[in-house]
Nucleic acid binder design. Structure first.
Lengths: 247, 247
DNA sequence: CGGTGTGTTGAGTAGACTCAATATGCGTGG
DNA sequence: CCACGCATATTGAGTCTACTCAACACACCG
């Protein structure tokens, strides 16, 4: 029954395989993405907004975030990236990057050149479909984030955000129902949730005092998972990943 | 110099050609997408949130919007679709649709089945790359919308939204520097911008009285394009479409 | 000619913001 | 080992943006 001879257990291979059945040759092509392993310090800007010729990366270790800057100096964090995530895809598909990407912790990542991607698509066409699928799942997360900003109160946003992050981390084995380790500052939360840092602090205090969730010393602890889900209206359907759909 | 014998001038062909040079055979495959022409009344729900087995559509005429509903009955409009736009791609890539799509005006659209897409990707692999490219451009718009909701004031949001819509309509010949015809109600604007309908009304009045823009009787008139762009911090780089990039 | 959808305006409220001061923790250099 | 600086977290006070509720205007349509 087992037709695969290769069992490449990289996070990316696993992620893409969730959408499209990849042949051995497809998987071998993917290997090329892991040739250029890099290491970056916290705060390092991997991709600069407006940069031309940018690379993409596959995150192996640590946290990063993608963001856009506004003319008045404020910033909006679009998404956080955790181990296994692809990062900066749009910045290689387009001439100039429409967003910046910054390391939050010390990170390890494989640099993927524009030519790596395009060659891969040319030699292993199914990869293009697989990447489209993965990119669409990322887009679904951005859309949910957008709903969060547009129609939810500060506390609902926070609840939703922490639950989504928790769910994503669980998928890669970095958290469980009780909580997860989290290197983000309240400024990161503010920039992601469209709030002021001061208000983030107040909201966190309120939620802690109400026995919902405790964010302290780099750890998020879910004190009442069920009630948190109620407040957030958290569905999780959009994070859905199921077995290979295309043979 | 001209290697193409086919000149299929559909909006979608033009859009995809902006990213990837399509062969005659690719373009012929695309033709299959136009077999099932449909017509829908205003308010018709083309895709229901949570629907399984949904189709996608290519919009030929009229306006539509994609949205998500919240448990309390509110809705957040994620994007508006205008002629030439692809609509509901994520709803066929995933088992269940994470968003709804509704006709705003009477519309004409070609229904694209899941199998149409997947067959096309199998027979004309470059199409998968082209669609990935187009989907990424759409994602860039969603990201800019997200920034709008997270970090801009009501007036800035409105300015940015109207300018973006104007720019997109210009690309398909449905508007110019002076303005464009717009079938949206103030409720649509409210649901898109994360504001209450009452506040949308006030903001529009304020902008009209300040000689910025006039939205009346189904027409948006830019009274001071430059100042509007200043207020919005409108860049337009993310809408960028240039000649074929991949041969 | 009344009903329904849309737009308009006023009055009062509340959630989130800004400014400002004060902790707390950590790394570096003396 | 202590002192200092810097980043982050916390709390208070006052303000403002955008919201809710409510009333009314206008147009289109059956």
């Amino acid at each position: 029954m087992e037709t695969r001879t290769l069992t490449l257990d990289s996070p990316l291979t696993r992620k893409l395989s969730a959408f499209v059945a990849l042949s051995d040759s497809d998987q071998e092509t993917l290997l090329h993405f892991y040739r250029r392993r890099r290491r970056f310090q916290p705060g390092h800007e991997l991709i600069h907004e407006g940069q031309t010729k940018a690379s993409a990366y596959i995150l192996a270790e640590g946290w990063a975030c993608s963001y856009k800057l506004l003319s008045d100096g404020e910033r909006q964090i679009v998404d956080f990236q955790i181990p296994g995530d692809f990062l900066g895809l749009r910045s290689i598909l387009f001439r100039t990057s429409d967003h910046g990407i910054e390391a939050i912790t010390r990170i390890e990542a494989s640099e993927v050149l524009r030519s790596d991607i395009l060659d891969a698509f040319a030699h292993a066409p199914r990869l293009a479909t697989a990447v489209l699928w993965a990119a669409s799942r990322d887009e679904a997360m951005v859309v949910e984030h957008l709903v969060n900003l547009g129609r939810r109160s500060a506390e609902e946003r926070m609840a939703h955000f922490l639950l989504e992050l928790g769910a994503r981390l669980q998928l890669v084995g970095l958290g469980d129902r009780t909580g997860f380790d989290c290197p983000l500052t309240q400024y990161h939360l503010a920039d992601a949730l469209g709030l002021s840092a001061v208000h983030v602090n107040r909201v966190l205090r309120h939620m802690r005092e109400n026995g919902l969730v405790t964010f302290r010393n780099g750890r998020v602890a879910f004190d009442d998972f069920a009630r948190l889900g109620d407040i957030a209206g958290f569905d999780m359907a959009y994070l859905d990943q199921e077995g290979p759909r295309l043979r």
